[in-house]
Amino acid sequence: MGHPNVGKSVFFNRLTGANVTESNYPGTTVDYTKGWMKIEGEDVELVDVPGTFSLDPKDKAEDVAVAMLHETRDVKVISVIDASKIERGLYLALEIIEEGYPVVIALNMWDVAWDKNIRIDARKLEQILGVPVVPTTAISGEGIKELVSRLKDIQPVEVDDIIANAGGLT
């Protein structure tokens, strides 16, 4: 899951070999698509959902995404974040973490962030959040392999821990 136009469909196509439409504008995906991928010989189902800004849906496409998440409790979530707009991406990621889903974060559009002189310490971010954080550039395929390899051992984390790691709420 992630905001509109962060590259979710690009990931989906890369991972499943499917043919979901990708475009360089938000709102390309308005419905969900299911596909299969292999992780270490095991078939895993992957769902591509429309972009959403929060878990509080504002339009029909966001509705689809949020309903999909809530209907299937036992899923792992790939949270795709536009690395050049990391704060708002984290907002959605935190919401998902708070609801108890195991999450891996893909810091996508790493190249764009780099061009904009934004530097993110992914390792530190991983320490604070307690979930895997992988810098990726989905369109060229960078980081995808690592993302997949980290997918199998992700666990739900407690927000309290995150708060503690970040040094409290004040």
């Binding site: 990391i86 704060e87 934004i118 530097r119 604070i128 995150i162 970040a166 040094g167």
Partner: peptide
């Protein structure tokens, strides 16, 4: 948002 603010201050540097 406070939490995000904290996290990003620790991990992100805007050049």
């Amino acid at each position: 948002w406070t939490l995000i603010d904290k996290i990003s201050r620790e991990t992100v540097t805007f050049g």
